[in-house]
Every structure is written in structure tokens, then in C-alpha cells.
């Protein structure tokens, strides 16, 4: 297994008038070829910013203030803008949340796909077009020849997201960052898209970071899960362990609040309070004020603890014997 992406201590801060927002504060990611990492967290936990930081697409007032991103062994921090242009869409691709918005409304699908190929490779239009058609077929779009000639508004939401995924896979990238790609879709389409994406990563060996707030979605596709809270990863481990036996109270709470057939009629678990104000994070453990397992030591920020299966950032973790009710 070759390591595609290694992120160590990534910090992305936003310098606003009201103060410094530490949107991402010391995130580590390690990703091998063909592996899928699920990055889970609620809104504002910094998961999307992590994705954008890897793409070097942070706009002012935000800035990457620390950490190292190495992609296939190459340090990305010193890259010039042209080198970035060469990397984006070619070696690292991105899929966005809302397929209604990410395709240019006035350009036909074939124009947008051919353009994406020709931006990185000197190939003829016909070759590029053929490749575009083949890729559309790969993501399960029936009659790709007709779809190529369509405008985005003629396609349904699920179809457009398939096109967006096809565009991401066009240049056979090493890494795809998918930022909540199924959030805007309904559940049946969602499972099809996940199925398609999973199949493609297996086929092509592309590594993927799947950003989502939905643990159920991530559980279905990811090999590993990182749970983010207030700009930090609070728990990380192989999907099965994190889902079946979460150690961090936040992960435990998230999993407990997922409704399932067995919990019908029963009151769902609820995490008290609200997501913290990123301008004024609580002292010590950011989750402390909402945590029902909080103890005195939580006033000091917990470091990463390591069990045999997973890593977690907690002074008083959920015991290994306690499983989530399903």
C-alpha cells in the first residue's frame, strides 16, 4: 500500500474582525491508494475547510497557518499557482455538494468534460469526447451519447451528480475529495451514488476523502472514519470499530441519535447544547460543556489516546465494553 496523502497538524485559521476562527486546528490524515476516508462532523466542525485546504482553495480572510500536506511524497506548501493548476482536476479532483450549482448552466456537458481533459492533456477533441463518453458510462449513465449533448438543466439532480463524479474521475486522479456529495440527493439516489463511487475507487485505485455529516452514509463507503469536532479530529479508526464501539462520547452520541427500526417509539439519544461558537471555544476539551461524561480533568485539553484499534481525544472515554444500541 503506497501512501497517497499525508496531512500532519493542518491548521487553517480565519482572521475575521471579530477574532481568529480556528476552523481547522491540528488535523492529521493519512490515506493509502484506493482507500476511502470518511470525514464526519456537524456543520462548522471544519471538515469542508480541511478539504479545501488540501486543494489550496482557502479564500481570504482564511489562511493555512500550520501543518504539512504531502501528496505522493511531495510537499504541497511550496507549490506555485501554475503547479496547483496542473494538480487540480488532474491528480486531485473534487466533487461538490450541490449538483445543481457545480455544472456551468450555459455549457453543454460534453464541452465541460472535454475542457476538463484538454486542460491537462494534449489530446484531440474526438479522443477527449470518447473518453468523456466512456466515463459517463462508467458512472452508470444510460445513453451517454445523448447525455453528452445535453445542458445541465435537462438532467435530474442524481444524473448531474453522476456527471460531476464522472468529471472528477476523467483524468484518473490519485485523490478525490468529495464534499457532502449526496446531501442534496434523495435517499435512493444517494445509495446509488455511493455504490457507484465505491465501485470506481476499487476499479481505479483512487483514494477518496468522503466528507459528510451523515454517519450512516460514511459507514457504507469508508474504510476509515475520522470524526471532527470544533476543528479537531476527536476520534479516528477503521469504520467497523468506530461504528460498533465508539470511544469518544461525541461519536457515541452521534451514533445513538441515529434512528433505526429497533428504536421505534423509544426516545432517541440527544447531545445537549449547541455546536460551540468557533470564536470562543470552551477551555480544555471543546466538547466538555456538552458532554455527559465530563470530569474535572476535562478542563485541560485532552491529547490523542491510542487503543489497539482506534485513536480518540478524550480523558474519560466510553468503555470498550459499551456498544451503541442499534
Amino acid at each position: 500500500m503506497t501512501e497517497i496523502l499525508k496531512v500532519t497538524g493542518l491548521c487553517t485559521h480565519f482572521f475575521t474582525r471579530a477574532g481568529v476562527v480556528k476552523a481547522v486546528d491540528g488535523v492529521d490524515i493519512s490515506l493509502n491508494r484506493g482507500e476511502v476516508l470518511g470525514l464526519v462532523g456537524e456543520s462548522g466542525s471544519g471538515k469542508s475547510i480541511t478539504g479545501f485546504s488540501i486543494m489550496n482553495l482557502i479564500d481570504a480572510p482564511g489562511r493555512m497557518t500550520g501543518g504539512r500536506i504531502s501528496f505522493k511524497g511531495r510537499d504541497l506548501s511550496q507549490l506555485s499557482e501554475t503547479a496547483w493548476q496542473d494538480l487540480r482536476g488532474n491528480r486531485i479532483a473534487m466533487i461538490f455538494q450541490d449538483p445543481m450549482m457545480t455544472l456551468n448552466p450555459v455549457l453543454r456537458i460534453d464541452v465541460q468534460m472535454i475542457e476538463a481533459i484538454q486542460a491537462h492533456e494534449k489530446v484531440s477533441r474526438t479522443t477527449a469526447r470518447e473518453r468523456a463518453r466512456d466515463t459517463l458510462g462508467m458512472v452508470g449513465i444510460p445513453a451517454p451519447d445523448e447525455r453528452l449533448k445535453a445542458y445541465p438543466h435537462q438532467l435530474s439532480g442524481g444524473m448531474r451528480q453522476r456527471v460531476a463524479i464522472a468529471i472528477a474521475f476523467l483524468n484518473k486522479p490519485d485523490l478525490i475529495i468529495a464534499d457532502e456529495p449526496t446531501t442534496a440527493l434523495d435517499v435512493t439516489i444517494q445509495s446509488q451514488i455511493i455504490h457507484e463511487a465505491q465501485k470506481l475507487t476499487r476499479q481505479t485505485g483512487t483514494a477518496m476523502i468522503w466528507i459528510s455529516h451523515d454517519l450512516a452514509v460514511v459507514a457504507g463507503i469508508a474504510d476509515q472514519i475520522s470524526v471532527m469536532y470544533a476543528g479537531r479530529i476527536v476520534e479516528h479508526g477503521p469504520t467497523d470499530y468506530v461504528i460498533d464501539n465508539p470511544r469518544h462520547p461525541y461519536t457515541y452520541g452521534l451514533l445513538g441519535s441515529v434512528p433505526s427500526a429497533n428504536k421505534r417509539g423509544a426516545r432517541l439519544f440527544q447531545i445537549d447544547g449547541m455546536a460551540p461558537n468557533m470564536l470562543a471555544l470552551p477551555r480544555g476539551c471543546a466538547f466538555g460543556p456538552r458532554c455527559d461524561r465530563a470530569v474535572d480533568v476535562c478542563a485541560a485539553a485532552p491529547g490523542m489516546s491510542q487503543s489497539c484499534t482506534q485513536k480518540f481525544r478524550c480523558h474519560n472515554p466510553v468503555p470498550e465494553a459499551v456498544k451503541v444500541a442499534k
Binding site: 482536476g89 488532474n90 450549482m101 456551468n104 450555459v106 455549457l107 491537462h120
Partner: peptide, 28 residues
């Protein structure tokens, strides 16, 4: 500031191309 422009940046298209090919037609 629309998302399709961000998507175009993520495709590694040049700035001039994004301006003339993606943004200009939407200003017509």
C-alpha cells in the same frame, strides 16, 4: 462566487479560461 466557478477552479482550468469561457457566457 457561484459554485460552478469553484468547480472549474478545481478542474485546474486557467483563470483566463474561467473568465471568458465560464463567466462571460453567464453574463450575456
Amino acid at each position: 462566487h457561484k459554485e460552478y466557478v469553484e468547480a472549474a477552479i478545481c478542474l485546474g482550468l486557467s483563470k483566463a479560461r474561467i473568465m471568458f469561457r465560464h463567466i462571460l457566457p453567464n453574463c450575456l
